[in-house]
Design a protein around this nucleic acid. Structure first.
Length: 587
RNA sequence: GGUCCCGUGGUGAAGCUGGAGUUCACGCCGGCCUGUCAAGCCGGAGGUCGCGGGUUCGAGUCCCGUCGGGACCGCCA
């Protein structure tokens, strides 16, 4: 029960069954409607809802005053029922109103109208913004997710362990937030980008199943789905296969989804990274819509068209006129825009074709294609009259990437729009591309991922073909998180470092504090981490994680309410052994 | 670091081809009002059109710069 010394009920919980009770409610004045000296309606609001209070005497309460109302719950008179309120059948009569605190007029309406208010102003007065139903709901969605995850993880034998916030700076990965040391001037702690290091050590330590809903910090530019600070369900398990990890993390995600939506999402699909790239042109495919990439390389094997002849990979997407009437009917201007977009991503060009009656092909390049090529193309693409075809011929990765981007540009719905499509993307490549400076492969994920056992014969000869036991979880085109089976044997770790061009000495210098414990009996282990903010945003129906974070930063990394970050005085710096450089000269 | 969009009383908007800080809705203050519910009616206050410069007889409007916000790219092993 939420009753306290000051109140008997929450505002939103009274209904027709409460009639006849004398109640006390506490909350904020949402609205008042005065009808002369002897009648006024005061709507009192708390996070649970709104209750109408009928005041017979004169009382001066204004918007957002904090009040306590005591009175008798009664059914509303015939014809005055408000069906848009859950409490609309009843009202409180014979009210005694106590003003607990007055309030200045708020800078914006504390209701749904503030959805349209400049976000900067909402953030400056976040304590008022959060008073609104939308934010109350969102924060509670988030709490439900955390709660459901904890319960599920604990049911499955995971132990919550808290890991340090102050840790050494590590050389790899995202930019870190640094914290100067007072006792060791000139030395710094780093704030964790993730508890990766700690959780693997906990496996060495025999914890067996660890989890934590952990705050992670990365000093990288902010986005709709990225903040400096974010929360992850971080987990690690010993003596497991990849399937064990996916099943356990999957259970937590499903539990969270059920807690919020009340229904289980469809089974989480699986797709390999290679298939995801081939079919959707991206490693975080949005499975809510089709427009899949269609393989056309062999179809144009003998073509006279120079842009296609000899291309190692030709693919196309079909913009279906029924589903995307606007895009399918793009004029020359828009098509040129798509071509520019394709070139920007790395394609040499973009071929567009409009399908007319009887499969006629209207395109600047139509004259270079034979009739049989055209008809084979139309049939391979499943195109019908009015459809727009977009084709790219290039290296496999460029072709996939460009069409995947165009597919998203044209077809992707807002991230929160149903149905929810969760998908595991597995078998990420161990290495991605060659570093132009070192001439060595670059790690696809991080250098501690276990290579796929089936690919070890290629490890030294064709490293770029080696898959990793690494996987992502994707929801509606947003990467929720990623994980892997980790390397637990020093010899395997050495082989990976060798491929990356990292010598034993260098590995010891850079990762020694991490690798040393592995000499003392590291169990085979693997884990995962996924972003709570992103999951909460999507399940709350928001397109932006700021809407599910109580006090977020703006895109420029500032807090309009506290004005953080702020300068500190020189004495404060001196204590830390710091001195500021002069501001960079503006040239 | 880059591309694009936005900036007008407390809030949200309109302001056309340059012609007086003009308009609309909400909010605010005062008055009236005994069944309203984003109450209604009457009256009132409130703005250096983000900031700076330029063009012009004249700039919210056109140009340049700058600051702030947002979306995206880079970046996020």
């Amino acid at each position: 029960m939420r009753s306290t010394a000051m109140r008997t009920h929450m505002c939103g919980e009274l209904d027709i069954a409460s009639v006849g009770k004398t109640v006390s409610l506490c909350g904020w004045v949402a609205r008042r409607r005065e009808h002369g000296e002897h009648l006024a309606f005061v709507d009192i609001r708390d996070h649970s809802g709104i209750m109408q209070c009928v005041v017979d005497n004169d009382v001066d309460v204004r918007s957002e005053f904090v009040i306590r109302v005591t009175g008798l719950v009664r059914a509303r008179p015939e014809g005055t029922i408000n069906s848009s309120l859950t409490t609309g059948m009843v009202e409180i009569g014979d009210c005694v109103v106590e003003i607990l605190n007055s309030a200045e007029p708020p800078p914006f309406p504390v209701d749904a109208r503030a959805d349209d208010v400049d976000e900067m102003i909402r953030l400056k007065y976040r304590y008022l913004d959060i008073r609104r139903e939308r934010m109350q709901k969102n924060l509670r969605v988030r709490a439900q997710i955390n709660s459901a995850i904890r319960k599920e993880m604990e049911t499955n034998g995971f132990v919550e362990v808290e890991t340090p916030f102050l840790m050494p700076s590590t050389p790899e990965g995202a930019r870190e937030f640094l914290v100067p040391s007072r006792k060791e001037p000139g030395s710094f702690f780093a704030l964790p980008q993730s508890p990766q290091l700690w959780k693997q050590l906990l496996m060495v330590a025999g914890v067996d199943r660890y989890y934590q809903i952990a705050r992670c910090l990365r000093d990288e530019d902010l986005r709709a789905d990225r903040q400096y600070e974010f929360m992850q369900l971080d987990a690690e398990m010993s003596f497991v296969s990849q399937d064990d990890v996916l099943e356990n993390i999957g259970r937590a995600v499903v539990a969270a989804a059920i807690a919020v939506t009340g229904e289980a999402p469809p089974e989480i699909e699986r797709i390999t990274w290679h298939d995801a790239m081939n079919r959707f042109g991206i490693d975080k495919p949005d499975l809510r819509f089709a427009m899949e990439l269609i393989e056309l390389t062999s179809l144009f094997a003998g073509t006279e068209f120079k842009a296609f002849a000899g291309a190692s990979c030709i693919k196309g997407i079909c913009v279906d006129a029924k589903t995307y009437p606007e895009a399918a009917a793009f004029g020359r201007n828009k098509l040129d825009g798509l071509t520019d977009r394709a070139k920007k991503i790395g394609a040499k060009g973009l071929v567009w074709m409009k399908i007319g009656a009887d499969g006629a092909v209207d395109s600047p390049v139509a004259k270079f294609l034979s009739d049989s090529e055209k008809s084979a193309l139309v049939s391979a693409m499943g195109a019908t009259e009015g459809d727009l075809l977009l084709l790219v011929a290039d290296e496999w990765d460029t072709t996939c990437e460009v069409l995947g981007q165009l597919r998203n540009d044209i077809g992707r719905p807002p991230v929160h729009q149903g149905p929810y499509k969760y998908v595991w993307v597995t078998e990420f490549p161990l290495f991605i591309g060659i570093d132009p400076v070192s001439g060595r492969p670059r790690p696809g994920h991080h250098p501690f991922c276990q290579p796929h056992p089936d690919d070890m014969s290629l490890f030294e000869t064709e490293p770029l073909k080696v898959r990793a036991l690494a996987y992502d979880l994707v929801l509606n085109g947003w990467e929720l998180g990623s994980g892997s089976i980790r390397i637990h044997e020093p010899e395997m770790q050495r082989r990976v470092f060798n491929q990356l061009g990292i010598s034993d000495e260098e590995a010891d210098k850079r990762f020694g504090f991490f690798l040393q414990p592995f000499k003392y009996g590291a169990p085979p282990h693997g884990g995962f981490a996924f972003g709570i903010d992103r999951l909460a945003a999507i399940l709350a129906g928001e397109e932006n994680i700021r809407e599910v974070i109580a006090f977020p930063k703006t895109q420029s990394g500032l807090d309009p309410m506290t004005n953080a970050p702020t300068p500190v005085d020189p004495a404060h710096l001196a204590e830390l052994g710091l001195r500021l450089l002069p501001p960079p000269a503006s040239s």
